[in-house]
Design a protein around this nucleic acid. Structure first.
Length: 422
RNA sequence: GGAGAGGUGGCCGAGUGGUCGAAGGCGCACGCCUGGAAAGCGUGUAUCCGUCAAAAGCGGAUCAAGGGUUCGAAUCCCUUUCUCUCCGCCA
C-alpha cells in the first residue's frame, strides 16, 4: 500500500505518476480523498462522544462511592444515550475504514521515476548485456531433449505422479540441482546474507503482507482444510518474518537468503513457452531478501543486481539485465530489474531472476518499521531478488554447454557436483 | 486428536468491576556521583488514530483477537486463536 499522506498532499501528482504504469488512478484516488475525509470526520465525532460518556461514567462512579446512587440515575440515562450514539458512529467509522482500506489495496506501488513507461515486455529497457554467445551447431538440442538423452529429468514420471509441470529430477540431473542450491547458498553467505529455512506454507496475513493477496489470489495453491497457501516464492515467508516488528536502526540492512521449493499454479498458461523447464508448477529457488533503511534502499537494490550478476558471471552464462517498463512492473514493486540468461538451443532469453525494490509497499501492509535516530518509528523498505531460480538456468546450462557427446559442468559447480561433465 | 493451565508494556510480573495505560522489578536512555568504571541516587522510558501548518498540548483506542453484559471491564460471559503441561498418534 502506498502512503495515504501522498494522496492527501498531492493527489494530482500521484495520478500523474501512475500513468507510467498505464494505470488510471483518478477514480480510486478521488474516492480515497472522499472516504478519507469522511472517516476523519466521523472519528472526531466518535471521539467527542466517547469523551463525554467517559466523563459521565466517572461522575457516576463518584456518586456511587459517596452513597448517592439515586442521584446517578439521570446520568446513567444520559450515558446510555451517548453510548448508543457512539455505537452508530463506530459502525460508520468501521464501514468507512474498511472501504478506505479496500480502495488503498487496489492501488499498486508508485513506480520509481526511472521506470520507463510502456505497456509490454517489448518496452523494457535493456541496461546491460554480457558474456559470449556459445556457437552451437545445427544439431544442438533443446534442454528437454538433452534431459531425455542423458536421463536427467523424467517429465513423464512427474506427470504420472502429480501432473504436468512437476518434473522428476534424476541421477546427475538431481545432483546438479543440489549443486546449484549449495553453490547459491554458499555464495549468499559470503555476500553477508543470513541463511534461513522458511515454512513452505503461509497464512493469509503473510500472503497479504507481501502483496500476493488479494492481487494474485488464484496463482497460489491453496490448502483449504487448513486455510494455508503454498508459497510461490520464499520472499513471502522470509519477508513476513519481520511482519509487525520494529527494528533498531543499526540492525539495518537485514540480509536474508533462503532456499525453498516454490509452487505456482500458473493458471491458463500452455503452449511452447512452457515446454520443458521453461515454466513449472513446482521449482527450486534461492531468494535473497533485504529490509533496508529508506535512504539506503536503492544502494541495496544496486548491490543485489550486481550480486546476481556475479553469480551468472561465475556460471559463465550469457545474460542481460532489463529494467521493466511500467506496464510490466509487478503490482507491489516500485522498480524491477529482470535478469535473463540466453538459452542457445532455444535461441531465447529466459528470465532467471527478478530483483525489486518495494519501498514501503510491503512494509506498510505488514507494519514493518524501524526506530529512527529521532525516536520515530518509520516504515522500512523491503527488497528481494532471485539468486537464483533453478529451472531456466538449468535449461541454459544444459543447452549452452552441450558438446554433442556430453555436457560440460561449469568450473565453480564441480566441487558441488563431484563430476566435470555429464 | 483428548484433558488441563494460561496469554498484561522491550522482558519479568502485580492487578478480579470505578482516576488502570495499567504497581513493582529488570532492561534501556539521560543526569548526578567517580581519575575512570561498577555500585548507588535521580529523571525518563508503548503503539495507533484524530485535532494542529508543525511541535507542545488536547481528545480517542489498545492488557492475544472478536463479540456481549454494565452508567463504567485488564477484571464478568461467549467465540476464535496461540502457548505450555499430560495423554494419544507420528517422520
Amino acid at each position: 500500500m502506498i502512503d495515504i499522506q501522498l494522496i492527501r498532499e498531492n493527489s494530482q501528482e500521484v495520478i500523474r505518476r501512475y500513468r507510467t504504469r498505464n494505470f488510471d488512478a483518478a477514480g480510486i484516488v478521488g474516492r480515497v480523498t472522499e472516504v478519507d475525509s469522511g472517516r476523519r470526520n466521523t472519528q472526531k465525532q466518535l471521539d467527542d462522544t466517547l469523551s463525554e460518556a467517559k466523563k459521565i461514567s466517572a461522575e457516576v462512579g463518584e456518586l456511587f462511592r459517596a452513597g448517592k446512587a439515586a442521584e446517578a440515575e439521570p446520568l446513567k440515562d444520559r450515558s446510555s444515550q451517548l453510548k448508543k450514539r457512539a455505537r452508530d458512529l463506530q459502525e460508520k467509522l468501521d464501514t468507512l475504514s474498511s472501504e478506505l482500506n479496500e480502495l488503498m489495496t487496489q492501488l499498486p506501488m508508485l513506480p520509481h521515476p526511472s521506470v520507463p513507461s510502456g505497456s509490454t515486455e517489448e518496452d523494457n529497457e535493456i541496461v546491460s548485456e554480457e558474456g559470449s554467445m556459445p556457437g552451437l551447431g545445427e544439431d544442438a538440442l533443446p534442454h528437454w531433449e538433452l534431459a531425455k538423452k542423458y536421463d536427467l529429468i523424467d517429465f513423464e514420471a512427474g506427470t504420472r505422479v502429480t501432473g504436468a509441470g512437476f518434473p522428476v529430477y534424476k541421477g546427475k540431473g538431481a545432483r546438479l540441482q543440489r549443486a546449484l542450491i549449495g553453490f547459491f547458498l554458499d555464495e549468499a553467505g559470503k555476500a553477508g546474507y543470513t541463511e534461513y529455512q522458511p515454512p513452505l506454507m503461509v497464512n493469509a496475513d503473510s500472503a497479504f503482507g507481501t502483496g500476493q493477496l488479494p492481487d494474485k489470489d488464484g496463482q497460489m495453491y491453496y490448502v483449504g482444510a487448513d486455510d494455508l497457501y503454498l508459497i510461490p516464492t520464499s520472499e513471502v515467508p522470509v519477508t513476513n518474518i519481520f511482519r509487525g516488528r520494529i527494528l533498531k536502526e543499526d540492525e539495518l540492512p537485514v540480509k536474508c537468503a533462503a532456499y525453498s521449493v516454490c509452487f505456482r499454479r500458473e493458471a491458463g498458461s500452455y503452449g511452447k513457452d512452457v515446454r520443458g523447464l521453461n515454466r513449472l508448477h513446482q521449482f527450486d529457488k534461492v531468494e535473497i531478501v533485504q529490509v533496508a533503511h529508506p535512504d539506503k534502499s536503492y544502494e541495496a537494490l544496486d548491490e543485489m543486481v550486481s550480486y546476481v550478476s556475479s553469480l551468472l558471471r561465475k556460471l559463465q552464462v550469457p545474460f542481460r539485465v532489463a529494467r521493466l517498463c511500467g506496464g510490466d512492473l509487478g503490482f507491489a514493486s516500485a522498480i524491477t530489474y529482470d535478469m535473463e540468461v540466453y538459452s542457445a538451443a532455444q535461441k531465447r532469453w529466459l528470465e532467471v531472476s527478478s530483483v525489486s525494490n518495494f519501498e514501503t509497499y510491503q512494509s506498510q501492509r505488514m507494519k514493518l518499521r524501524y526506530r529512527s535516530s529521532g525516536g520515530k518509528n518509520l516504515l522500512a523498505h523491503t527488497l528481494n531478488g532471485s539468486a537464483l531460480a533453478l529451472p531456466r538456468l538449468l535449461a541454459a546450462l544444459l543447452e549452452n554447454n552441450q558438446t554433442g557427446d556430453g555436457i560440460v559442468i561449469p568450473e565453480v559447480l564441480r566441487p558441488y557436483t563431484g563430476f566435470d561433465a555429464i
